[in-house]
Amino acid sequence: MLHDVLGVVPRLFIHIYKTLLNRHSLFGLLRHILINMTFILIWITTFKNAYRIDSSIRPHIRVNYLERADHRIFDINFTGLSIQCICAVFGYSWMYALTRRPKLSILATLPPFLLNILYAATHTLCQPLDVFAWLSYGVIHFISPFLAAFWLWLFASPGVVSIFAWCFGIQNCLGIITHLSFPTAAPWYGDQYGYPLPPGNYSMPGSAAGLVRVDAVLGTHIYQNAFKASPLVFGAFPSLHGAFSCCCFLFVARYSRRGTFLLGFYVLWQWFSTMYLRHHWRIDLLGGLLYSAFVFSIFYRSLVRIDKAYAFGVSGGNGWQRLFEGTRLQYAFDTQPEKDYELVMASDSSTEEGSVESSIEQGRRDGDLEAAWVQDSLGVQRGRRKI
């Protein structure tokens, strides 16, 4: 018995190793990962070394701008409601342009109104809410991209994780470029220095704001020390905490209806936490959403092509299918794709909608070429794949 177990364990590890390689050499896999993480590494390096930039060449810090803009956009008056409605129309137009689905596009009109509702709930402070906000802002925030990437590797089309990494890295690079070129103060600045707000300077330390209360609960000074030594103090707009959660939502929700609800809750949780802990204004979170949606839109066509290739078996199986290849679990979360490389190439190269329609009809596949909530950009209506 022991001999059999000892014989199975090495084979199991070899199988997992080959699954991770996915026909790459070890060097090729590492090179592939490094290329996909290019913008992520650029963002991290820039953030960590932002303090090295000479303050004499850095732009003026706008300590009042975000607070004024936040009230102008989100206050419940004629001007505020008009701007919120314009944002809602823009959100609807963006989602409809991607999906051509009116009912789904209505969801994209909600963010400005949801931010107002969540903001109204941030004025009551208590220890349970401190811990609730900390779990999202100070814990899950740091692991959510890794969890999302792992889930996408398991269940999404092969190659989606690479697109996720590029979107994640580029949105963060755009965010830190904005932080450096347009430095702004977070809500804690007024709480700490009082009103009227004093002029900001780059020698001022950062603040943990509401996370100080979490340090008191935990009996530590982790967050006080970490934020005090932050290399980029005046980087409120856009909120990369918000952009992180939105990026994870856009990708996971594309491939799972359950993921839509789970990640949707996470986005709202993150929005509430950042405002409750006084680290961001509502406009910062809306900005993070816009940055994430903008980059996602750039790579949308690539996702369409990847999903088509996977639907017809051109790109092989996803991580789950490779891990459980040859077992009953291989297609537990999906149906077996058709093997028809020529069909996919024909649908990609054709410029006439009619010819694309006829090519896809020949595929004999009932599942959607898109994922759970996105239609094919070519306008071909399909049934949804089981996730």
Rank of each mutant, 00 (worst) to 15 (best):
S245T: 07
T124R: 05
L323R: 12
V356N: 09
Y51L: 10
S359F: 13
C167V: 02
D191Y: 11
Q362Y: 08
R322E: 07
F142D: 13
E370Y: 15
P183W: 06
C246T: 03
L369C: 13
F47G: 09
I57W: 14
W281N: 08
F234H: 01
S144W: 07
I176S: 08
L114D: 00
Y189R: 15
Y276V: 00
T124D: 12
F168V: 01
G28Y: 08
D54E: 08
K48I: 14
L29D: 11
L180F: 10
I44D: 02
A50S: 07
T46K: 04
R11N: 13
E338A: 15
L125Q: 14
H279S: 04
T122W: 02
A185D: 05
Q192H: 15
T184M: 11
S359C: 08
A226Q: 05
I61V: 09
D70F: 01
L66R: 00
Y189V: 01
V356W: 12
L110V: 02
G190K: 06
R58E: 11
I57C: 10
R278H: 09
Y189M: 06
G210D: 08
P337N: 04
D334C: 15
Y17G: 04
M95E: 11
D376P: 12
G259H: 05
Q330T: 03
L268Q: 02
P198K: 03
L323V: 06
V214S: 02
L34D: 11
A208C: 15
H123F: 08
F312L: 03
Q84D: 07
F27A: 15
L135P: 05
G235N: 06
L277G: 14
F265I: 02
S162E: 05
P205F: 08
S256I: 08
H279A: 05
T46A: 05
I177G: 12
D284G: 00
K339Q: 10
W271E: 03
L115S: 03
T220L: 09
D284E: 00
V161D: 00
F90Y: 13
W166L: 14
R62Q: 13
Q321K: 12
H221M: 10
A309V: 02
F150C: 14
Q224S: 13
V63A: 06
P10V: 15
Q330W: 09
L30V: 15
R68E: 13
L285G: 00
L329Y: 03
H15V: 08
Q270V: 01
I14G: 13
A253I: 08
M37L: 14
F155E: 07
S302Y: 11
R382W: 15
L104S: 14
